[in-house]
Every structure is written in structure tokens, then in C-alpha cells.
């Protein structure tokens, strides 16, 4: 719900945020982070607050298709952006292939890091498709073609999302399943099939 007592006029702004394809008209305290808008104003609790300081990745969402820690983004600066949260990944009852794979692989325990892991994986697969190198990408790799997604690449690229339950090996398997199944990992209209043939 909206705070009952608004901040002073000079400390707030009216704006429109585009969340999961829906414009949201809001009046926000300038100090409000995107994460707090999602969780406290819009009831979108999928993005989690693990640290509020950009140290854990639990708050990961997609901003114009790229992953970002929403706890580090001031909401008032996001007006022109398309924000996708974990709630925006499934198509109706049909889960995103990564969501399916996380379930199938038991890539979660307490589930608190999970929405961030899944959003991060979606963004990561796109980065890989776009040829973004990582710390473990060979220096000789051609940056204009997709990066070859080795297990080491997945581990490296998913290291911004902490999981205290230690679901990492299963998370890596889930991402591998989706990559192998050919899903492009895009939040909307993902072409791939759910991870199949997983143990």
C-alpha cells in the first residue's frame, strides 16, 4: 500500500514505471529503490532483499533485458526502462524454461535466492548470446559471436547471486539444461522447450 503520510513535495515525484509490460503510475519518495517499489508498493515480492547493498543478487531483475541489482537502482531513474521481474517470466500457467529446470533439478532449497538466480540466468544467457566475455572466457574468443557456454562460464557468470543453502551445483545443471535445450532465455516469447531429459 502507499504510505499514509507522503514525504514532503520536494522529496517525491510522480512517474510511470513499466513493470512486466504494465505501466504503473506512482508517486515515489526519491530515496525509494526499485526493489522497495516492487516489494512494498506493487506487491511484487518475487525480487528479494538479501542485503540491500548490491552484495548478494537476491534482488536481481531485468532492466531493458539486462540483469541488475534492483536494490542499487533508484526508482525515479527508471522511468523509460522496461523492468522484468520473476513474476513476468512465466506465460500464464506455462513456466519459463529456467523455472521448469530449477524445479526439475531441485536448484533451490529455501527459495529466497531463487527468483534472483532465475532472473540472473535469463540475463546471463542473453549476455552469452550477445558475446559478452567473462573472467573465464578465453582472450582469443571472438566477441561478435555467442560465447561457448562451458560449466566454468556458468559458474563464473552466476557468481553474483549468492545461495547460502548451497544449491549451486543444481543451479548450474538447470542452466545447462536450458542452454542445451536451445531456449534463448529471453523473458518474453522464449522459443525453447522446457529442459528435457534431465535426471
Amino acid at each position: 500500500m502507499e504510505p499514509t503520510n507522503q514525504p514532503a513535495a520536494e522529496q517525491r515525484s510522480a512517474l510511470v514505471l513499466h513493470i512486466n509490460g504494465t505501466p504503473q503510475r506512482l508517486t515515489l519518495d526519491h530515496r525509494t529503490t526499485l526493489l522497495d517499489v516492487l516489494r512494498e508498493h506493487l506487491g511484487l515480492i518475487g525480487a528479494k532483499k538479501g542485503c540491500d547493498h548490491g552484495q548478494c543478487g537476491a534482488c536481481t531483475v531485468l532492466v531493458d533485458g539486462r540483469r541488475a541489482n534492483s536494490c542499487l537502482l533508484l526508482a525515479v531513474a527508471q522511468e523509460e526502462r522496461q523492468i522484468t521481474t520473476v513474476e513476468g517470466l512465466a506465460e500464464g500457467e506455462r513456466l519459463h524454461p529456467l523455472q521448469e529446470a530449477f524445479l526439475e533439478r531441485d536448484a533451490l532449497q529455501c527459495g529466497y535466492c531463487t527468483p534472483g538466480q532465475i532472473c540472473s540466468a535469463v540475463g546471463m544467457l542473453r549476455e552469452v548470446a550477445d558475446g559478452f566475455p567473462s573472467h573465464v572466457t578465453p582472450a582469443t574468443a571472438d566477441p561478435t559471436v555467442p560465447v561457448e557456454l562451458s560449466t566454468d562460464e556458468i559458474r563464473e557468470r552466476m557468481s553474483g547471486n549468492l545461495c547460502r543453502c548451497g544449491a549451486y551445483p543444481r543451479i548450474v545443471e538447470a542452466v545447462e539444461d536450458v542452454a542445451a535445450a536451445g531456449a534463448d532465455g529471453h523473458p518474453a516469447g522464449a522459443a525453447g522447450r522446457p529442459g528435457q531429459g534431465v535426471a
Partner: peptide, 11 residues
């Protein structure tokens, strides 16, 4: 699990 991967499990 489904609630957790879709972000609807409420903490």
C-alpha cells in the same frame, strides 16, 4: 517449488 520459482512464496 512452483511458488518459489515464480516468486509467489511469501516470506
Amino acid at each position: 517449488g512452483r511458488e518459489k520459482v515464480t516468486g509467489t512464496a511469501r516470506y
